[in-house]
Design a protein around this nucleic acid. Structure first.
Length: 892
DNA sequence: TATCTCACG
DNA sequence: ACGTACGTGAGATAA
């Protein structure tokens, strides 16, 4: 017979993980009474997985009883300095216990003891009684309980990804046995429990020492025999700390529990109570799982109450003539399309609100009726929408030139908080506590099963509900914008730039298919040749595009040195291959093969696939995606067309002007991010350099290498200085710079130190940026664009450091994005005012591309740089360089 | 769907 | 002691 199984869960630590796993969703998980439910929800998900996996007969979820335990008697500061549990989590703990009881699972807590000790004691009992024991926790400390009978599952990321610690796995990870792990911790201490361990001893050293000496006690018996070293001194000096650490780290396996193994046997689930619990918590997913047989599917009470059905009328042709709409009135409009790519997506229907009445229809052709069309095109009739650009492009396909859209719910919510970053109206509504709108994927399905609901009620409710939500949340969102001082950013940058982008997307850019197919043939021949050579060198045929197969060939069959590993095997990235170049000629061939294969598949084939019937590609600029305020470009991405290699650049020859004798004109900002840095830091030296018009990288080289003149700067020096300049913008580290420049870390640090000496205010800016982010919880651009940085307070060094670098970089990258957006708005206005036929067609972060008729070239040459350079007034000049030619390749 | 790799600023 | 440059999108492979 199989062993009996005992499952022990560390309630507090798992709840803690559960809470932070869905921390970003915190405000989305609230029941109607306002209780946060994210941790409860995630805890249940974890339970499902673990119960299913372990199939235990006995289960105990242990909780910490109170603040102080017997460990505080040994060491008053035990767990001192720990931030207290956020109230959003502690309010959920009683409900987690309630849920566990409804599920027939036992919970237990004991005064003066931690959950760890309860679990440790039950492990002892369970092992004695012949149970197979599984422990689930978020705390690595409990791995000391691992044994042949006991496996300790520790959450890795979130709560569903668990790492199983058996004694063998312990050995692999820490190099020590579970019992030795206690001694190891005694030496290295524990920051989160706030006890120090021995000075200058971390996991690595501690593991080595314990592997040699077995226990802390044995180590001190032999400490005098160790050869003199700083470490030996530290060990002797900190002996007390080590011995105390051992006591604190040891889990009590004989705590005076008042329950036994029979008390934790699983009881039947109380379905009635469970259903009431899920209803109270508004857990629709779990509720629907309660009735797999489908009989009387429980109606979600709270949702019903929340979703006051919105009244609407199906629009008929005759109604249109009865519309009485006058200038200055506002209507709310929503155009439904199936799928993300609104250039091609199927129309689902529309909804609009006029005169307090909501109309809906599946038939978008009704919009072309003269009265409706002129309303939508009337600038004096203002419109509320969700996604101005999508709506404008969609209407354009119906021959309607939308005007007067001056409120965009999507843009507003993106500016207010782009952390969760959804473009689904249902999700956005829920962020603001409005549960009335379903997500599009709930209504239309996702993946293969996307379809328009046949039931009129379902579709019309959805569309009408959106109209109501746009109006209901408008005041809230506008108030938030004001509170954030973002009204200007919203009204004078994002809304106008959305209009400009609509024009650009609708115009598209002409791409010559035959140029691409010619390249396709050339590359195909080259690839075939290289393939054969590589197979020959390797001695067998394999898939060069498979990192797995390539890794096998290079590092196992050919015995090359694996320089870097990835999660799944050997890394074969450019970095690695470049370092192996001299080992074998196959490396060079693989690099070239990869480069060409990339260009062939992504650019040649990729672009050919997206050329529309009009001979153009119509990208979509995602305006509400990036964390920094930049645009991104998809279907196709026009912001990463190759420019760095000769073969890659050929792709640009396919991008041509509308008219055969016309021009592609390109104009890009020179060093815009560094100029922004000079501006926001106010650094005198750097500003002076820009005002004088120096080559900034050469100038930096001169300064950090202590030269008298830029004439003494060698190309190598300039290259290095350039890397430092870039590094600064990214929130530099000596490690990152050393890797980038292939130099020692020490040398990299020297460069950085020199840099900060020469540009002291840049250093100040960086410190201040981090400090401000810590105080406010977000970083901000010149135009008040925000990026929230909750991780700036993270305990984990890496997570926190990342947030700190982000705090430095975001205002720089974001302000540059603000500036080019302003330039685009001014540029489009200029083109319109001057009635030019020239079209602005592409934006690549610091660069604008134009499709110019022959006779407008001279005008464009003059006005584009002017407009870009005068987008904003800074303490230093903005500079824009331009070029032109009969295709994008020649426009450098 | 996740992972790796590589294209851009 | 640890592991790190900032921001993106797309294709191919392998699960």
């Amino acid at each position: 017979m199989a062993d009996k199984k005992l499952l022990l869960i560390d309630g507090n630590s798992v709840a803690f993980r559960a809470f932070y796993a869905l921390y970003r969703q915190l405000e989305n998980f609230r029941n109607p009474e306002g209780l946060h439910t994210n941790a409860i929800y995630t805890f249940k998900n974890m339970l499902d997985v673990v119960l299913n996996d372990v199939e235990p007969d006995h289960v105990l979820v242990a909780f910490d009883a109170g603040k102080t335990t017997f460990r505080n008697k040994m060491y008053a500061d035990y767990k001192g300095g720990r931030q207290k549990t956020p109230s959003e989590l502690s309010e959920q703990l009683p409900y987690i216990q309630e849920l566990l009881h409804d599920l027939g699972l036992s919970t237990y807590e004991l005064d003066n003891y931690e959950a760890d000790d309860i679990i440790g004691t039950f492990v002892t009992i369970g092992e004695k009684e012949g149970f197979k024991v599984t422990v689930v926790t978020g705390d690595k400390d409990l791995t000391q309980l691992a044994s042949p009978q006991t496996t300790v599952m520790v959450t890795k990321s979130g709560v569903l990804n668990l790492e199983a610690y058996t004694p063998e796995h312990m050995k692999k990870v820490n190099g020590v046995t579970p019992t030795e792990f206690i001694d190891m911790k005694a030496l290295m201490g524990d920051n989160s429990d706030n006890y120090p361990g021995v000075t200058k001893i971390g996991p690595k050293k501690a593991s080595q020492l314990i592997q040699e000496y077995g226990t802390v006690e044995n180590l001190y018996d032999h400490v005098d025999d160790m050869k003199p070293s700083k470490m030996k001194e530290n060990l002797i000096n900190d002996k007390d700390k080590a011995l105390l650490g051992k006591k604190l780290a040891t889990i009590d396996r004989h705590a005076p529990l008042t329950i036994g193994i029979d008390d934790v046997k699983r009881r039947p689930i109380d379905y009635q109570k469970l259903r009431r619990f899920y209803e109270k918590m508004n857990f629709r997913k779990f509720l629907s799982e309660l009735n797999p047989d489908g009989e009387s599917q429980p109606q979600d009470q709270s949702e019903k109450a929340n979703a006051k059905a919105v009244a609407f009328t199906e629009l008929k042709e005759n109604d249109i003539n009865n519309f009485a709409i006058t200038d200055g009135q506002t209507i709310t409009f929503y155009l439904g399309m199936l799928g993300a790519n609104y250039h091609l997506a199927k129309f689902v229907g529309f909804a609009l609100k006029i005169d307090q009445k909501i109309f809906v229809s599946r038939n978008v052709d009704l919009l072309k009726e003269a009265k409706l069309k002129s309303m939508l095109e009337d600038k004096q009739i203002t419109k509320n929408v969700f996604d101005l650009k999508r709506t404008t492009v969609g209407l354009n396909r119906l021959g309607i030139h939308a005007r007067g859209i001056d409120y965009d719910m999507l843009l507003a919510s993106y500016l207010i908080n782009n952390e969760n970053n959804s473009d689904d109206m249902g999700e956005i509504c829920r962020m603001y506590g409005d549960n009335s709108v379903k997500s599009d994927y709930d209504v239309y399905g996702k993946g293969k099963s996307v379809h328009i609901p046949e039931d009129d009620q379902v579709l019309f409710n959805h569309l009408a509900g959106k109209i109501a939500a746009i109006e209901n949340l408008k005041e809230t969102l506008l108030a938030k914008l004001k509170e954030h001082e973002q009204d200007d950013l919203y009204a004078n940058i994002e809304i106008p730039v959305a209009r400009v982008l609509s024009v650009m997307e609708i115009n598209g850019i002409k791409v010559q298919a035959n140029t691409l197919t010619e390249l396709q043939d050339e590359f195909a021949v080259d690839l075939k040749k290289m393939e054969q050579q590589i197979y020959h060198e390797a001695g067998e045929e394999f898939n060069i595009n498979s990192p797995k197969q390539l890794g096998h060939i290079l590092f196992e069959k050919m015995g090359l040195k694996p320089i870097k590993k990835t999660k799944t095997g050997y890394s074969t990235s450019v970095d690695v291959l470049n370092q192996l170049k001299d080992e074998n000629p196959i490396i060079e061939q693989i690099l070239t093969y990869r480069q060409i294969a990339k260009i062939q598949s992504t650019y040649v084939n990729g672009l050919l696939d997206v050329i529309q019937k009009d001979g153009r590609v119509h990208t979509r600029y995602l305006q509400t995606l990036t964390a920094t305020g930049r645009l991104s470009s998809v279907d196709p991405n026009l912001q990463n067309i190759p420019t760095r290699t000769e073969e890659g650049k050929q792709i640009r020859k396919a991008f041509v002007p509308s008219e055969p004798d016309g021009y592609i004109f390109s104009c890009d900002y020179s060093q815009i991010e560094l100029r922004v840095l000079a501006q926001v830091s106010g650094d005198e030296q750097m500003q002076e350099a820009f005002r004088t018009g120096y080559d900034i990288h050469a100038h930096t080289a001169m300064r950090i290498f202590h030269l008298k003149s830029t004439d003494d700067v060698t190309p190598l020096m300039r290259r290095r200085a350039k890397a430092v300049n870039f590094g600064i913008v990214y929130g530099i580290s000596d490690y990152g710079l050393s890797k980038n420049l292939n130099i020692g870390r020490k040398k990299a640090k020297e460069f950085i130190d020199n840099y900060f000496e020469q540009y002291p205010q840049v250093k100040e800016y960086m410190n201040k940026a981090v400090q401000v982010a810590r105080e406010k919880g977000y970083a901000e651009t010149i135009m008040h664009r925000r990026r929230y940085l909750p991780d700036i307070h993270a305990k984990n060094y890496n997570v926190r450091s990342f947030a700190e670098r982000t705090a430095i970089n975001s205002p720089i990258q974001g302000s540059a994005a603000d500036i080019i957006k302003i330039a685009m708005i001014n540029m489009q206005k200029k083109l319109d005012d001057m009635h030019l036929k020239t079209k602005m067609v592409v934006q690549v972060h610091d660069e604008l591309i134009f499709d110019v008729p022959k006779d407008e070239l001279e005008t464009i040459k003059k006005i584009v740089p002017e407009v870009m350079q005068s987008a904003v007034r800074l303490d230093i000049p903005l500079v824009a360089d331009s070029g032109y030619g009969h295709n994008w390749f020649d426009a450098k």
